Amino acid sequence: MLNNISINKLAAAAVFTLVSTSSFALTQEQQGLEISQQVKQHDTGWTDSSADMLMILHNAQGQKSIRELKIKTIEQLTDGDKSLTTFNKPRDVKGTAFLSFSHPVEADDQWLYLPALKRVKRISSRNKSGPFMGSQFAFEDLSSFEIEKYSYKYLGDEVINGLDSFKVEQYPVDPHSGYTRRIVWVDKEAYRIQKIDFYDRKNTLLKTLTYTSYRQYLNQYWRADTLNMVNHQNGKSTELKWKNYTFKSGLKDGDFNKNALKRVR
């Protein structure tokens, strides 16, 4: 006759077997989706953020130019995030501002204010694969990560930056994307993106983005101090160096509209 301890052990074993069987039965697509959902879940709840950034442009000959920017972002739990990027230096780009409304399914809304033209230019969804302000980042790279923007496939595990990581392939849903696919490495420890390979419309490796020197804020949210985008086809690269992060400072929706671009002027 079974006692309570034996019954509990059998129940625990049954649950373990059920969970193990369910996990084992997941397809590569389901696994890729689950990992990506964890990435999003681990970076939810920060409300708003501000940061200073250096954008360092490197050409194929090794020459570089440096720009100083300020970036503000507000989290949207029922939509993609909103961000406002302002160029402060050097003089030839001072006052340039970029406003982006990310969306999970619909095309992102993006506007660029160019002081030399004294007007706000809307970025067409068909042009979002173009370079942002001469950098190796495309306009679509500046959109917040939303689960619905991609379909997924888990490719296996790999060590990146000394961390055991998941390797997930992402296929853009938007037909106007400049990429056929992205391969993303996510560390198992905290679900932080470590590296992304971007493949162009010919399915050839175009760019690689690496994330280094992560710091944790509010005992929960991780941000990389340095992002480096290398273009393998033209030999150029763009390095982003972040500092002075602040979170939950009370930014409002009203800080992120076309009037905000006008106030930058």
Rank of each mutant, 00 (worst) to 15 (best):
I160G: 04
L114F: 07
E68W: 06
K64E: 09
D109T: 15
L261K: 09
M1P: 10
I147C: 14
E29A: 15
S22C: 15
N8M: 10
I183W: 01
I7D: 06
R223M: 08
L69N: 00
Y179M: 00
I193C: 01
K89I: 08
Y199I: 10
T73K: 06
F256K: 00
V105R: 04
V120K: 14
K121E: 10
V39K: 05
K252C: 08
G254E: 03
S20K: 01
K262R: 12
N127C: 05
T78I: 09
K64V: 13
R126P: 02
N127R: 11
T27S: 08
A190F: 07
L205G: 06
Y214R: 07
K207Q: 15
I123D: 01
R91V: 13
K188T: 09
I193G: 00
Y179N: 02
A51T: 13
F16S: 12
N59A: 04
F132K: 00
V184W: 03
S213Y: 07
D255E: 04
V105G: 03
S177R: 03
S83H: 01
L251M: 12
V159M: 05
S144A: 15
K94N: 08
A51D: 10
N259W: 11
G45Q: 03
V230Y: 09
K258I: 12
M229I: 09
F101H: 07
S125W: 04
V173N: 07
K262F: 05
I160Q: 11
F198A: 01
P90E: 04
P175C: 08
H103F: 06
T208W: 03
M55N: 02
F247E: 07
L227R: 00
S237N: 07
S249N: 12
D197N: 10
L251K: 10
V264M: 07
K207R: 14
S100I: 13
T238C: 14
M55T: 02
M1S: 12
I160A: 14
T238K: 02
Y150F: 14
V93M: 01
D200E: 08
H232L: 12
M55F: 06
L206F: 10
A25E: 05
N161C: 14
L26K: 08
V173K: 08
S83A: 09
K72Y: 14
R223Q: 10
I160W: 13
Q110F: 01
F137V: 04
E68Q: 11
S135F: 04
D48T: 01
E68M: 05
L77C: 04
R201C: 08
D164N: 15
V39E: 07
Y113P: 02
R265W: 11
W242H: 11
K64F: 15
L77N: 09
D81C: 02
V93R: 00
S6T: 12
D52E: 15
